[in-house]
Write a protein that binds this DNA or RNA. Structure first.
Lengths: 199, 199, 199, 199
DNA sequence: GATGAATGAGTGTTCATTCAT
DNA sequence: CATGAATGAACACTCATTCAT
């Protein structure tokens, strides 16, 4: 990357970083560009100097977060037991939130899933989780009642759910611990064989 | 209710009913009032005759659905075993969807959760589920790892998740059966005691 | 047409009429919608109530003018001698300008030909002139040096040229008489057989 | 001119030359400065180093073209018969287009006549044609029906018309020959004495 | 009760121009 | 000389809401 491009990329990241709190506290569609600019302390012209379209900002934001995830969490997911990888993923995710502050909690698992079309499906986190479940299915670790897609959706929903709750309570408890609990919840659930109505 | 009021309420309901397909197929914020009116076959003036604000329509819609739920599903939730009530609720909900068509599936558990403020929390379905979990907590049926609010959120997320998946696949499988599977998934999960890493 | 639609059409025409002076004095692209609205004494909302896009206004304007032309001038163009029809067209056009005021002079032959794409080619006036030249070609009344398209372009250019001049001089001379002169200029020119360099 | 100034002028010309294809293929107003810079391979800063305003570029462009015209075509216009000078001008112009490629055809007679204010009237080509018609008037070579200004306008319109047509057909015919035909058309027309309806 | 014309603040986006480096 | 980051007014267009008929 040339010096100029590098500088641009840096500034772009700075702007994005400054917008994370706003982005996570409100629906993206509900935030106007001028609001975005006021928050970032830049002019509208500057915004459009760095982002071609409003939605480019969002994509940039997700990209930054995914890069972090890829770098720090994905390398740890090498266990033979896929359920262990699931635990690892959840733990890595919870730690990430804890070290980067409240705001990002929603962004890893998806900010505003509705209306994103296929954007979410292309994201690193989504794909990684899907990979794990696919491997688990092959190894016979998960109940045949549920499809891989369903479990992926559901696992992401859980991540979102815990993160939202933690945000709502303003980080008043240990999210890593809580996350472990829910992960077990999840793992027990998806391994269940019967229909629960055993006599 | 006076004769006049009754007539008004009836017309209001008619309008709402005619808008359910549209409401469920798109994000409420993305639908304009004029689009709403065109679909319902009424003028903008008429719309504002029956609804003070655009969002009143949405509230009315949810109210209608909740009424149905209250009338047909709630009376069945009288079992001593709260987990059984949970199963009942899920089954009632799945049946409702099956008999009323694809479109309403999202509306029971919430159309556009984000940005609703506290609207969701005031809804009958949310409150009923919360009641069940509170009772279950008192009876010691659920793990202490999770709060009632968390479980309520999570259960609703699951309902949404299954319904969304079913919509996406255009009703290609038996939702009642699928729902039972996920309910068991859920029940097993929330009864889990350990953290899964105990040897 | 229903009562409502009729009323709408009337109002639309009123708005267009009130904008003719502005439309003819400046490049359409250079006039902003808000300027248009201020001139017409309506709000931006009202403008968009009657016209879907800014350019719809322009099309409406041309339509009104063409309708007038069709009604009053076209029926006269029945002479066997096509050059006589050309004279008639030019005279009808000049009269129209004289009775409707300065402003419309440009609009018959085209306001801003550049960037119109094929809009101009679809206009009644363009097509009528083309028809006349085609008939003239068949009857052997015009030199083979020039194509029908070229002559049509050129004749319209002449109309525009005279009208622009007359506007510039604020109607200080008799346009009908002037037009006759130019029409003869034109007719002599397009009947020329040689290449002018005969020794 | 100082060495520095000279170098500046040279660079300015280079930039202008590199922009001719773009300038002639699109409406000047529709081309943004950044587009101009990208095409010329310079930065926005550099552009504004050489041109005070965007429109300065256009004026510079016309100036270059006019210089060429002055140098190569004007010296030939010395015939006693002004109509011969007109033929010469048209021929010189057509040759110029043929040797410099399609793109410049519009630029000689004017790129975007509308909205130029008096810019066009100050251009060398306009003034030269006007001089010819003035001389012709004095010598009694042209009909008294038309003013010098009208004929000048009209002659330029013809040049534009032929050039536009040639561009549109991508140079598929011999423009010099075509131009001769139209010049004769024009000359015959402007020498006409009667009103054509005399018996 | 029913209508739809009218409103105007608000939206995302463009772009000529300035200026510190 | 050259750069491109920064600016902000301006643009076309949307839409929830009001109100006279």
């Amino acid at each position: 990357m040339s010096k100029v491009k590098e500088k641009q990329a840096k500034r772009r990241s700075e702007i994005i970083e400054s917008l994370i709190p706003l982005m996570t506290s409100e629906d993206f569609d509900k935030i106007s560009v001028s609001e975005l600019c006021q928050t970032a302390g830049i002019s509208i012209g500057t915004f459009y100097h760095y982002f071609t379209k409003k939605s480019d900002m969002l994509i940039g934001l997700l990209w930054i977060i995914d890069e972090d995830l890829k770098e720090n969490t994905f390398p740890l997911l090498t266990n033979e037991d896929e359920m262990e990888n699931l635990r690892m993923f959840a733990r890595g995710w919870a730690s990430y939130i804890q070290s980067h502050g409240l705001e990002r909690s929603k962004l890893i698992s998806g900010v505003n899933p509705e209306g994103w079309g296929n954007l979410e499906k292309e994201r690193a986190s989504f794909q990684k989780i899907q990979e794990i479940f696919e491997a688990a299915r092959k190894k016979g670790q998960i109940s045949k009642r549920f499809t891989v897609d369903e479990l992926t959706d559901f696992f992401l929903l859980m991540l979102r759910s815990v993160s939202t709750d933690w945000s709502r309570r303003e980080g008043s408890y240990d999210i890593v611990n809580k996350m472990e609990g829910f992960t077990e919840f999840f793992i027990q659930g998806c391994q269940s064989k019967g229909n629960g109505k055993t006599k």
